[in-house]
């Protein structure tokens, strides 16, 4: 028995080294692969690659979607950079809103993650769920709810604040430039805190208990353990969270749109009072689909791409350098 199988094993490689037979698997397998991949590749090409190239092309034209395109060279970009204050305003708004919301979200998420991953905490699961639930709400609902809550005259927030005598007269949360940004930031913090908390908790769970034991023995108190051990070991997760928040922040669209433009919010320009909450995405959307300036919109979208790419690149460099220290 043994000798027979040994013979078989010796023979087979020799077969492979000869010319492939017709029914040989590797050749046919390649052909089939193309069929299976074709639909997906076609999809990627048509819905992804081509639009990207097309957008770039129309950014040099004036086009309203109905009539023919007119080639106008870099006029769109000129108007965007030099004449239209809204580009820098939207950039500023986006940055400000991210600056208001991202750090607070992160700190809150850290606090929650720390508290809620401790051991015997009563109703821990319930609290975790509560903090996470806002993340799965649709932005439409969130926008509408916040518009109602922060309404100047009938909103719950003003009523509570006045009842507690923190303010004397109702604040125009949605009517004032900076208050509008703060309201939007609060909505964003509320929505995303839970998600970041979950990520941080999973990061924390990867730190082995032994390290904490060693730290206790070495004499670290709770604060020292948190800042000198937990936090540095969470670095990977933190970097991820910050970068994805930055990228997501630049694409902010749903929440400001629905906070200021739902049927419940009263009349505002698309970006809220004085366009204070006009994010870059909203700006793009308004120009393209409301004003039918597709060429201009295309130019805006390419500038957005440049900005996002730059910021991602820079922030990754900064985070990496920290690593090497």
């Amino acid at each position: 028995m043994k000798e027979k199988s040994a013979r078989n094993i010796i023979i087979t490689p020799a077969t492979n080294s000869r010319k492939p037979r017709r029914g040989n698997k590797p050749g046919k397998r390649n052909r089939y692969a193309i069929f299976f991949l074709a639909p997906y590749i076609a999809g990627v090409l048509v819905f992804w690659i081509l639009p990207i190239l097309f957008t770039f092309a129309i950014s040099f034209t004036k086009w309203d979607g109905f009539n023919a395109m007119q080639f106008i060279g870099i006029e769109n970009y000129k108007h965007l950079f030099l004449e239209d204050g809204r580009f820098f305003k939207s950039l500023f708004n986006t940055v400000v809103i991210m600056g208001l919301s991202i750090p607070v979200t992160l700190v809150l998420a850290l606090i929650f993650a720390y508290i809620l991953s401790g051991k015997a905490l009563y109703a821990k699961r319930f609290l975790q769920l509560g903090v996470f639930l806002p993340y799965i709400m649709t932005p439409v609902a969130v926008g509408i709810i916040f518009a109602l809550l922060f309404d100047q005259h009938y909103g719950f927030v003003n009523r509570i604040l006045m009842y507690l005598h923190i303010i004397q007269s109702p604040l125009p949360w949605l009517g004032n430039e900076w208050l509008a940004r703060i309201t939007l930031a609060i909505a964003l913090i509320w929505m995303y805190c839970g998600y970041q908390m979950i990520l941080l908790m999973s990061g924390m769970s990867m730190i082995s208990e032994d390290v904490y034991d060693a730290a206790r023995i070495d004499g670290a108190n709770t604060r020292q353990v948190f800042f000198r051990i937990t936090l540095p070991l969470l670095k990977g997760v933190l970097v991820f969270v910050v970068i994805t928040s930055l990228i997501g922040g630049f694409q902010l669209f749903d929440e400001p749109l629905l906070l200021f433009n739902s049927s419940l919010s009263g009349k505002f320009p698309i970006g809220g009072p004085d366009n204070a909450a006009l994010t870059m995405s909203l700006f793009f959307y308004n120009e393209s689909y409301t004003n039918f300036n597709f060429g201009y919109g295309a130019a805006i979208s390419y500038m957005m791409f440049v900005v996002i790419a730059l910021i991602s690149f820079v922030s990754m460099k900064i985070m990496d350098r920290g690593d090497r220290l």
């Binding site: 125009p172 009517g175 004032n176 505002f268 320009p269 698309i270």
Partner: peptide
């Protein structure tokens, strides 16, 4: 018209309020 009625005039209303 869209720009004036949907964007500018509402801004004007809010400015009056402010």
């Amino acid at each position: 018209d869209t720009i004036v009625v949907d964007e500018l005039m509402p801004q004007g209303y809010r400015d009056i309020e402010a």
